[in-house]
């Protein structure tokens, strides 16, 4: 009873909101790259918003369902079809035992999320189901999913089709052409020349194809140091913008190491991490300086938005329960 991978895609891993509490032992947090889309995939199904899901990147897999279940897709649009029939992201989808979901290359963005109502039946490793690829722990045997894998699910459910969905505007950030990533000054912001700080905020940057779940490597106007100074290794987090000697920034992402030794020019604000995670290689964006106060306010607003969407979906599922 589960979901079977019949075509691999490029990179599919099991992720939740991450592994907290073990960074001081050297374990990466990992977790979804786009936690906004990931949480919405769960909220649509009235799951706990931190339930483990499949994160499917660049090219989606094809999956056969080996039980009746209710699923949802959010994030990047991978032209989903169930038994050759086009379906949409952002709503509950009822599937039957033997149905096949096919996904293709993401049309925009990178990461698409597949949630299963009731969740995946996988063990926790250090309080989390997130896959940590480098340490080969968590998720499904600590690795990406390959053809033939069957991921067990917790609760099969039979249901008719659903006629409601979340607003597609909630995912507008994925296809936006005018990309601005806001940041807070990093702890070593003063280590960089004024000219470089100015370039950082005015010039366009792109992510390179050397980017992965650990870090997005950027190319653009190089950032210069006032003096070359050694930084003692210290903590880093999701969205930390480091500058190595080459001057081309690296933004640390979900699979980052807990500590790093490169100077930090900035920190991407929390509400812009989802946008950043979906930026494709060679897509241009610019940085804009923000303040801690603004970032905190935006984060609170985002949390409230998530709560009200959760309330809306829970009501929909209560109605469904009554009408069953």
């Amino acid at each position: 009873m589960g979901i079977r991978i019949i075509e691999e895609g490029l990179l599919t891993t099991v992720q939740d909101l991450g592994r907290f509490g073990y960074q001081s032992s050297g374990f990466s947090v990992s977790g979804a790259m786009d936690s906004w889309a990931m949480q919405l995939a769960n909220i649509i199904l009235d799951n706990d918003k931190g339930e483990a899901v499949l994160e499917m990147s660049f090219i989606g897999p094809s999956i056969t369902f080996e039980a009746d279940m209710i699923i949802s897709l959010t994030g990047a649009d991978m032209s989903p079809k169930i038994n050759e029939k086009v379906v949409k992201n952002g709503k509950p989808l009822s599937v039957k035992n033997g149905d096949t979901l096919t996904l293709r290359t993401a049309k925009s963005g990178i990461h698409c999320y597949l949630a299963i109502k009731g969740g995946l039946d996988l063990p926790n490793f250090l309080n989390s189901k997130s896959t940590s690829l480098r340490a080969q722990v968590g998720g499904f045997h600590g690795r990406k999913l390959v053809v033939g894998d069957i991921i067990p699910i917790l609760t099969p459910i039979q249901a008719a089709s659903f006629n409601w969905s979340l607003s597609p505007f909630l995912f507008d950030y994925i296809s936006s052409n005018d990309l601005t990533i806001r940041f807070l000054e990093g702890r070593q912001y003063d280590w960089f020349t004024n000219q470089s700080k100015q370039h950082f905020e005015t010039e366009a940057y792109q992510t390179t194809t050397q980017s992965d779940r650990m870090g997005y490597r950027l190319k653009g106007m190089p950032i210069h140091f006032i003096h070359s100074k050694e930084l003692l290794t210290e903590a880093t987090t999701f969205g930390t913008i480091q500058v190595p000697a080459s001057g081309q920034p690296i933004i640390l992402m979900a699979d980052r190491q807990p500590t790093g030794g490169y100077p930090k020019i900035g920190q991407v604000i929390n509400v812009d991490l989802a946008t950043l995670s979906q930026v494709r290689p060679s897509q241009s964006f610019t940085f804009l300086k923000s303040t801690l106060k603004e970032a905190q306010t935006l984060m609170n607003t985002r949390q409230q938005q998530l709560s009200s969407l959760q309330t809306f979906c829970t009501l929909k599922w209560k109605e469904w329960d009554r009408c069953k």
Binding site: F20, G21, Q23, S24, L232, T233, A235, T237
Partner: peptide
């Protein structure tokens, strides 16, 4: 959680 390093402690 908290993460120590050479000269800092980071509290999440």
């Amino acid at each position: 959680e908290s993460v120590p390093s050479y000269t800092t402690l980071t509290v999440y």
